[in-house]
Amino acid sequence: MDSLLTPLLSYLLLYRYVALAFVVYIGAVGAPLPVNEMLLALGAFASQGYFSFWGSLMIAVIANCLGDLTGYAITRKWGDWIVRVLHLRKARFFVHLEEELRSDAAITVFTTRFAGSLSSITNLLAGLVRVPLGTFIFYDFIANVIEPAAALGIGYVVGNYWSDFSNLFTIIAAIFAVGIIMFVLIRIQRKIMKKYE
């Protein structure tokens, strides 16, 4: 079992919904915590009557959305200063990434919710390139309902054998992340090629 997961599960059992909200929020902001595995276990706990399934889902969704909004808000407020200080607009790749994120904001925000740590990076980038707040919130919310519901649901059904599925979850998130990065790179490369044709 993940060395971070064991203490998380203890905190979850000790402090229950407060721990759930805190861990999911911090994970959404960017801390590398095994949140999906924790939700899988939480689904199992719910199946045993120790937690409420729907209450847990509601708290996970709200905490996830708030965490994502925090990352978005940080760069939305201080993004221009960061870009100036780091001279990011001098880097052609960043300019293309900015254009790509603006044109495909909805699909990027939605799909990166399923890609582990890439979700937090996307939140920061979305604020940096000023993706419309309404667009961000809408697609973030939809994906933030699907992802924890899937983890909780699978945990609920498999019960005590949830740990058999936790590694698969991590691998699937990693594959999603790599796939999304490659997709974005292809799109950027196509735009560059088009420009110079």
Binding site: L168, I172, I175, F176, V178, G179, L185, I186
Partner: peptide, 27 residues
């Protein structure tokens, strides 16, 4: 072009994802 190799890699990733999904169902 590099995009050709990236497309191949994406297809491979897609196949791996399908295989993992099958493993999940099999489990």
């Amino acid at each position: 072009p590099i995009s050709y190799y990236i497309k191949i890699a994406l297809i491979v990733l897609g196949i791996v994802l399908v295989v993992l999904f099958i493993l999940l169902v099999r489990n």
